[in-house]
Each structure stands twice: as structure tokens, then as C-alpha cells.
Design a protein around this nucleic acid. Sequence first.
DNA 1: TTAATAGTGTCTCTCAGACAATATGCG
DNA 2: CGCATATTGTCTGAGAGACACTATTAA
Lengths: 254, 254
Amino acid sequence: MTPNTKIGHEYQPATEAEFLVAYKKQKFPKPSVTVDLTIFTVVDGLLQVLLILRDGHPFKDCWALPGGYLNVEEDETDPSNQGEDLEEAAHRELEEETSLPQHSCHLEQLCTFGKSGRDPRGRVITVAYMALVRSSLAPLIKPKDDAKDARWFTLDEIKALGVPLAFDHDTILDTAIKRLRGKIDYSPVAFDLVPETFTVGELRLVYEAVKGETYDPNNFHRRFKRMQTDGIIVPTKGKRATLTRTAAVYRFKR
Amino acid sequence: MTPNTKIGHEYQPATEAEFLVAYKKQKFPKPSVTVDLTIFTVVDGLLQVLLILRDGHPFKDCWALPGGYLNVEEDETDPSNQGEDLEEAAHRELEEETSLPQHSCHLEQLCTFGKSGRDPRGRVITVAYMALVRSSLAPLIKPKDDAKDARWFTLDEIKALGVPLAFDHDTILDTAIKRLRGKIDYSPVAFDLVPETFTVGELRLVYEAVKGETYDPNNFHRRFKRMQTDGIIVPTKGKRATLTRTAAVYRFKR
DNA sequence: TTAATAGTGTCTCTCAGACAATATGCG
DNA sequence: CGCATATTGTCTGAGAGACACTATTAA
């Protein structure tokens, strides 16, 4: 890395130990770092996103993606502990927001946004993550139904708000949707949106909700069977689920 | 975003203006943010990466990806100016390192790394970018050939160093290679590694260098012709280039 | 002339889209 | 029973991989 001379990052004594002692005494402006989450689920064949209503400034009373500051408090007694990792913070936020047990949801880093002026409090860089909540877990998330502070939105409902989301969260959400739509074609993310066991129809509904287009049920079934012969999907004993008739139940492998 | 109570992010007066005044007076620990670049090129049919030799602590005398601090100095007279954007910083670093004119290279955000302990100076979050330099520009980059401070490495040469790169740059590089290998199949990144005008063979060599595998020249040619009928590629007047015989020359469209 | 690469043609296999047909079981 | 969905099957066309073949030209 090329140190920035203007803010004094390049003082260079002989040993690294000496350097660090001197370095710690210096002061240069730093940004804040936050972690924001785009939490998706598919319920009733609709792609939905979890938004929270901000109760404090800035963007008070605006809907926003859940998120929070990255904890970077250094441990005085252990210099190697410089606070929580980014993934750790994302998992923490996800748990705080959904009350779901850690690692019950797929979580992946999406993109980092840091435009000057995106937060009136000062320079804030946000690392956006995308989380996928399987439909069987989604209903567990909204216990505080009366309190209007967190709820699932379909994409149309967000548009229907008529006002933008807080900060640059519209851009983040847009990036997340594009990423999800792209990834579903070549990676097994769909299996993180469906219940642990599922029927062909349920999986197809997830694809349709994410891509926003209909799939020919016959062709999808063929594709599904190929996944079965490839060992990606295995049949499950509990061989029934009810829609208009019975259907075989499967489970994702690995 | 959910403010972190422990570091006092949630003081909430009535108006946003009042809030901001009070907020600015607070102090909480912040990380540094850097931008690191993985700069690729393909020369002589080999995928190469630009590394610099660190002349200061930490990781003095280690090879590293070029990078530097994000400038977040706020403008006292203009509160909306909170420093340079992430992309701006990446372009600046790229120009500083390669001396190539701005926007002559493809540049895209890769991933953000922020593990606790990755930098002994303190908590540092780095936003990694991937840059692609077309082979016709690559030779322009190493004027300081005697000074051993920046040069192209093939992947094998990096392995042959026998020591890891500085910081977590091995991980970043690995991520970049995987991204490039993945993207070349479904996006036109190869055209950012080839000269502005190119022959079928030159384009194939780029694919082979990136993927690390050989392509059947006949089948590749067929694929190439399909791109031509799709209008992605157009023939160019200067219809010759020399290897062992002449070949038609093409240009990427859009 | 020769050798290496450009460029064409062919066969096979896989997979996607369109669409026909049968099976099943809830109402 | 009737109908919606599950499940199977067939036809076609696009594209990938393997491989044979001809054309061109620098050395």
C-alpha cells in the first residue's frame, strides 16, 4: 500500500515495533464503517425484503435496510483483538433483527458503498450483505406485528411507498436483487429460500418469484429430475405435501 | 441502521439539525479504510499481476498488492464533501501505480476484507478492486525497471517467491483470480485484456491464460463467429496481423 | 517447401423451450 | 365427478466438445 503522505501515514523508523509505537500516536481522519443487510425471503410466491422503520435521526421515520456499526473497539490487553469481523457483525445484525439462531440463514457479502455524502453524520462506508431466509422461518420474524417497526415488503410495496428508502438503500437493494437474480441461475441459492424439504412446485415458485417470470412446469420438472440424477437433490421419506394433490418431497444435498 | 449503544451512536434530539450538531461532538473508535488493487494483464499468453515491493513498515520488503488509504478529509466549508469516493480512490491508485490515463482500464469492485488483526497498525478495512490492463498497455507500466519496486508477476512466479504476500493479500489475489475466471464465461471482460483490435487467436490466448486451460481452436473460432453474427464483435478495416500468417482483425462493439 | 496457424465442415451429446398426454387426488 | 397440479414423453433448435479437412503465409 502506498501511504498517503498528507495525513502522515508514512513515518518510518528502523524496526516494525518502533514503527508501531510511533504510528499509534498519530491521528488522521477515519470514516465510520457500518454493515447493512438485504434480507430476502419468498412467501406466497412473492420475493420479499425485510425493512425497518428508523426511529432516530438521520432519515427518521424512513424505511431502511437493517444494519449497524461495525464494532472496532481494540482490546487494550490483547492487541491482536481489533473488534469483530465483518461477517461476525453481519451475523450479529441478522440475529438481532430476525431473532433467528445464528447460521440458520445464508449470508454473503454483496458490495461496499461509500460515496461521499451518503450519510449526513459524516463519512460512512457500508459493507452490504445479502441474507436469505427460508420461507419456513420467515413467519417467525414478525412477532411485534402491532409495532410498525419491522416488516416484510414485496418489491411492489416498496415502490408503492412513493418515497425513497433511507441513505442509498435503494441502490443497495437494487444491487442485491440483481445479484440474487444472477446467482440463482448458476448457484444453489434457491435451496436457501425453500423449506428444508420441498416439492418441485415449491422450488419452482421460488425461481419464479426471484426472476419475476414464469417457468414452464414441465421443463422445470425435467431440470429438477436432472438435479436428482446429479445427486444435488435427494428424495425424502415423508413423501407427501398438499397443494391440489400430493407431490414427492425432496431435500438439498450438500 | 441500529445504532450501537455502547459507543454512543444513538443520542436523539428533536430535529436532524440538532442531532447532527450533537453527534459531531461525540467520539467513538473508527477503523481506517484502504483501497487495494489486483491489476491483471495477459502478456505472452500468461496471466500476470502487478505487485509492489513495500519499502516501509509493516511488511517491509514484502511483495504486496498496490493500494492506499481512502482520503476522508471533510471539507470544513462544504459539509457535503466528505472526501473521495471509493471508485475515485481506486482510479487514483491505479493511475499512480501504472501511470496510465484514467479510465483506460476496466476497474470493478471485488470484495471487502476486514478481519480483525489483518493489519498490525490497527483496525483496517480494505475494499479490494480488480483492474484489467490490456496487453497493448502493459509494457508501458514498467519504466523503472532497475528499481525493483514494482513489476508484473505470473501466478507461478508468486508461488515461487516461497513467502506469502503482505497482509491478507494472498486471499485477495485468490478471490480476484476466481472472480476473473468466473466472469470471463458470461461477461465481456476478455475484451479489456486484449488490444483494442485483435485477432481470433489473440482473444483465445486471453481465455486460455485466464482459465488456465487450452481451448480447441476450431470450436473457439465457431464461438467467435457467433459473437460476430450477434454484433458483439465487428471486423476492422486493418485486416492483417502477423503471427505465422495473416489473420482478420476485429473490434469489440459496445 | 514446410510448418504453424487461420478458417470451414461434420458428428454427437446435452440442454432448453414449446407443447401433448397421462396420472393423481382434493373439492 | 371435475379440475388443477404432478409427472412423463416428444420434437426442435442452440451450443459445446471432438475431430477431420483445406487455405494461407512467414520463415
